[in-house]
Design a protein around this nucleic acid. Structure first.
Length: 407
DNA sequence: CATCCACAGGAAGGTCCGGAGA
DNA sequence: TCTCCGGACCTTCCTGTGGATG
C-alpha cells in the first residue's frame, strides 16, 4: 500500500466533474416510464374514442366497460392515464363523487394483493393475509356503497392475473354492479398486452367486461423517431443527442414490435451512461451500450431472484453447455441436476417439476427450450442458454450454496 | 406405414406458511 | 384456542404425441 494519493485524485476528479459540469439532462423525469406527457403523439384517434366512451361519467352515468389491447409500449397505459387524468380534473370541478383506481395486476402479482391495493386507494386498509378473497372484496364494495362512490377501475396487464389465477375476481366486479344499487357503479377498464387474452376468460365475464374494445397498433420506426425527438426537447439540453443516436434508438425499439417504452428507456440509460463518462453528447455508442446493459441487468436480476431449484437447474445447464453445447435435453439435464443437488445435500425435485421450471425459465427468456421430436428416440425439450454465460455464473455466484459447486 | 420412445404437460391434490377471526 | 384462508411450491398420476426407424 503506497500513498493514498492517486485514488483520492481520482475521486476528487469525479466529484469535481459532477459539481462543475453542467448536466446533459434538462429534465430526466421526462424519460421515466411512469411519466405522463402533456401531449401524446400518433394516438389522437384512441384518445378521442376512449374519451367519448368515458364521457358519460360527467353526467353521473355509468360508462361502458372497455378493453384496450396492444403489445407493450404501444401507448395503452399512457393514453388511459392521460385521459383519466383530464377527466378527473373535470370531475373535481363538477364535484362528482367519482374515483379512478389504477392497478397493475402484474406488479400486484396475486388476486389478494390486487384487492389490498384497491382498498388502499379507497382508504381502507386490508390485512395482507388471512382474509378470504370474497371477504376482502365485500369490504371494498361496502366502502363504495357506504360512501356512495362511483369507481372506474383500471386493471393494467390484466392478462397476467387471469392467466395465473382465474377470473372470479373479475366476475365479482361485473356482478356487483347489479347489487350496488342507489345509482352507484363500477366500470372496468382492462388493459392487456395479449391479443388472445379473451380466450382465457369465461364467457359470462367476457360479455360483461368487453362492452367496448380498442386496439393499439405498434408504432412504426418513423413514429418512434418522432416521439423520441419530442421527448428529447424537454429531457436533454439542445444538441446533446445526435441524430444518428435517435435513429438507432428508434430502430432498435422498432425491431421489438414498435415498443415506445423500450425506446425511451434506452434513451434514458444511454444518457446516464454518457453523463457518467463525462461526455457532453449522446451518441450511437451510448445507445448500443445501453441496450446491452439493460439486457444484462434484467438477466442478472431474474437469475438472482430465482428459487433454489431454479438456480440449480441453471447451474446444471451451465455445466451441460460447457460439456456438450448441443443436445441438452430434459433427461440429461435432469440427471445432471439430481447429482448436483445430492452433492449439496438437497433432495432433488421430480422430473415433472423440473420440466415445469424449464418452461418458466424459457418464459423468462433465460433459456430457450422448444420441444423437439427425435422420432423413435422420443420427444424432449432442447435446451439452449440464450443469455451470456458469464452473466449467469456471476448471478449464481451470489447464492452461497450454489457458488460452492461452481468451483 | 405402423410403431414406439422419451418425454410434454394437464389435472388434482398435498403441505407448509403467515396470518385473520370467532 | 381452533379453524379457515390464499399463495407458493411441489408430487402423483395420467394421457398425448412428432417423427425416425424397422
Amino acid at each position: 500500500m503506497g500513498a493514498a494519493g492517486p485514488s483520492n485524485d481520482v475521486l476528487d476528479e469525479i466529484f469535481n466533474r459532477t459539481i462543475n459540469s453542467r448536466s446533459i439532462f434538462l429534465n430526466r423525469d421526462v424519460l421515466r416510464n411512469d411519466y405522463i406527457p402533456d401531449h401524446i403523439l400518433f394516438r389522437d384517434d384512441q384518445i378521442s374514442q376512449f374519451g367519448s366512451i368515458l364521457a358519460p361519467i360527467l353526467r353521473g352515468n355509468k360508462p361502458s366497460n372497455i378493453f384496450l389491447y396492444g403489445k407493450t409500449g404501444t401507448g395503452k397505459t399512457v393514453v388511459a392515464r392521460y385521459v383519466t387524468k383530464k377527466l378527473y380534473e373535470r370531475i373535481l370541478k363538477l364535484n362528482l363523487n367519482t374515483k379512478f383506481l389504477y392497478i397493475n395486476t402484474r406488479l400486484a402479482s396475486t388476486q389478494y394483493k390486487m384487492l389490498v391495493e384497491l382498498g388502499a386507494q379507497l382508504d381502507i386498509s386490508l390485512p395482507f393475509t388471512g382474509l378470504s378473497l370474497s371477504e376482502a372484496a365485500s369490504r371494498i364494495f361496502d366502502k363504495m356503497k357506504r360512501d356512495g362512490i362511483n369507481t372506474i377501475i383500471i386493471l393494467d396487464e390484466i392478462d397476467y392475473i387471469v392467466k395465473n389465477y382465474d377470473d372470479n375476481i373479475l366476475y365479482e366486479f361485473t356482478r356487483v354492479n347489479n347489487e350496488l344499487l342507489n345509482g352507484n357503479f363500477i366500470s372496468i377498464i382492462g388493459i392487456s398486452n395479449d391479443l388472445k387474452f379473451k380466450e382465457y376468460l369465461d364467457p359470462r365475464v367476457l360479455s360483461g367486461l368487453s362492452e367496448e374494445e380498442m386496439v393499439f397498433p405498434p408504432y412504426t420506426v418513423d413514429e418512434l423517431e418522432a416521439i423520441l425527438t419530442d421527448r428529447i426537447k424537454t429531457a436533454f439540453r439542445p444538441g446533446v443527442v445526435s441524430e444518428s443516436a435517435v435513429k438507432l434508438c428508434a430502430s432498435l425499439a422498432a425491431s421489438e414490435h414498435g415498443d415506445a417504452r423500450r425506446a425511451v428507456d434506452l434513451l434514458r440509460v444511454a444518457g446516464e451512461l454518457a453523463e457518467r463518462e463525462g461526455s457532453d453528447v449522446v451518441d450511437t455508442d451510448h445507445i448500443t451500450k445501453a441496450s446491452r446493459s439493460i439486457e444484462r441487468d434484467r438477466t442478472y436480476e431474474v437469475i438472482r431472484s430465482l428459487p433454489l431449484h431454479g438456480k440449480l437447474i441453471l447451474a446444471a445447464v451451465l455445466a451441460a453447455v460447457l460439456a456438450a453445447p448441443e443436445d441438452i435435453n430434459t433427461g440429461r439435464l435432469y440427471s445432471n441436476y439430481t447429482s448436483m443437488a445430492r452433492s449439496l445435500g438437497v433432495e432433488p425435485l421430480t422430473q415433472r417439476r423440473i420440466s415445469g421450471i424449464l418452461s418458466e425459465l424459457d418464459v423468462l427468456g433465460v433459456v430457450n427450450a422448444p420441444v423437439v421430436s427425435n422420432g423413435r428416440f422420443g420427444r424432449s425439450k432442447r435446451v439452449k442458454l440464450v443469455v451470456p454465460r458469464e452473466v449467469v455464473s456471476r448471478a449464481l455466484q451470489e447464492d452461497e450454496l450454489i457458488s460452492s459447486i461452481l468451483k
